[in-house]
Simulated scan of single mutants.
Amino acid sequence: MSNTFSDNNQIEVVSSFSELINTPFQGTMNAVCWQRNLVGDFKEIISELQLEDNITEVSSEDLLALNLSEEGNIAREIILNDMQLLADHGASPSLNLLKCYERDEELGFISTDVYSYHVDRSPIGTDTFLCTYHGAASDIIANDQVEQKVLIPEIREQLKKLHNGPEKEFEDFLKEYFFDLHYQPKPNAEPFNLGVGHLWRIAVDHPEQKALPCVHRAPVENDDEYRLLLIC
C-alpha cells in the first residue's frame, strides 16, 4: 500500500480549493488532492452524533446542534466550510457517519459493492469529491494496475450464463447491472490510500471525460471505529 504522493503520476497535489476544482484531468492523471493537515477534534463530533443505521447522513443543522468543545468546534467549522465550498461549486455534498456499507455477496464470483474496486459513471460531466475526516480512508489504484472484471474469462463465462440471452444484448446487460464498472487488481498492484483530512477530486466516466476514470474502493472499516466521510 503506497502513501507517498511523490512519483505518483496518477495524482496531482494542490494547495487550495480553487486549484482542486480547476486542475484538468489528463492522461494517466485522474485524481487531484488538496493536501491538508487538519486540526480539531473530529472524533468528538462522531461521539456526539447518533448512528441511526449503518449509514447516517448528517446535515449542517445536525452539526450546528452539537454542543462541542473548542477543538470539536474547530473540526465542525472545517466540515461546514468544505460543504459550503462544494455547494457553491454546484455539487451536492453529503456528510455520512458510517459503520459499514452493504455487502454484495449474492453471486459469489463477482462483487459489485463499494468495497470492490470500481469507477463512477455519469451521463453528464461531473466529478466525485471525497474527504475522510475520521476512520479508515478509501484507496485508489492506477488504471494500468487493474483488469476489468467482465474481461476475466472465468467471470465472463459465469456472467454469460447469468445473462442467458442474445449475445448482442450481453454488453447492455453488463452495463445495466454495473458489472462493467468493477475491476480486479493485477498481481503486484500498489493501491494508494487517500488518507485522512485531504479533499480529493477524482475522475468519473462520462461522455466528455478526457482522462481514464479513477478506480477506487471503500476501505474495510477499523474495528469499533466509525468513519466520517464527505462525498459528492
Score class of each variant (00 low, 15 high):
103 R>D: 04
40 G>W: 02
73 N>R: 12
6 S>K: 15
186 K>Y: 10
134 H>W: 05
146 V>K: 04
229 L>R: 00
97 L>W: 03
47 S>C: 06
57 E>Q: 12
120 D>I: 01
8 N>K: 11
212 L>G: 04
96 N>K: 10
9 N>V: 07
127 D>N: 09
201 R>I: 00
20 L>Y: 03
208 E>W: 11
21 I>P: 00
83 M>V: 04
28 T>H: 13
178 F>Y: 15
164 N>K: 15
107 L>H: 14
156 R>L: 08
82 D>V: 01
51 L>Y: 08
13 V>Y: 03
131 C>P: 01
103 R>C: 06
99 K>W: 09
231 I>Q: 01
182 H>N: 15
27 G>K: 13
16 S>D: 04
86 L>V: 03
72 G>R: 01
106 E>I: 13
63 L>P: 04
130 L>R: 01
107 L>D: 10
41 D>I: 07
165 G>C: 10
59 S>C: 09
44 E>W: 10
20 L>H: 05
33 C>Y: 01
93 P>Q: 09
56 T>M: 03
171 E>W: 11
208 E>K: 13
151 L>V: 06
73 N>V: 02
199 L>Q: 02
37 N>M: 06
148 Q>Y: 09
119 V>W: 00
217 R>F: 07
230 L>M: 03
24 P>M: 10
111 S>E: 07
205 D>Y: 11
154 E>T: 14
38 L>M: 14
198 H>A: 04
225 E>K: 11
27 G>Q: 10
232 C>E: 05
110 I>L: 13
162 L>F: 12
211 A>H: 03
92 S>M: 04
19 E>T: 04
85 L>I: 03
9 N>D: 15
44 E>M: 09
43 K>F: 09
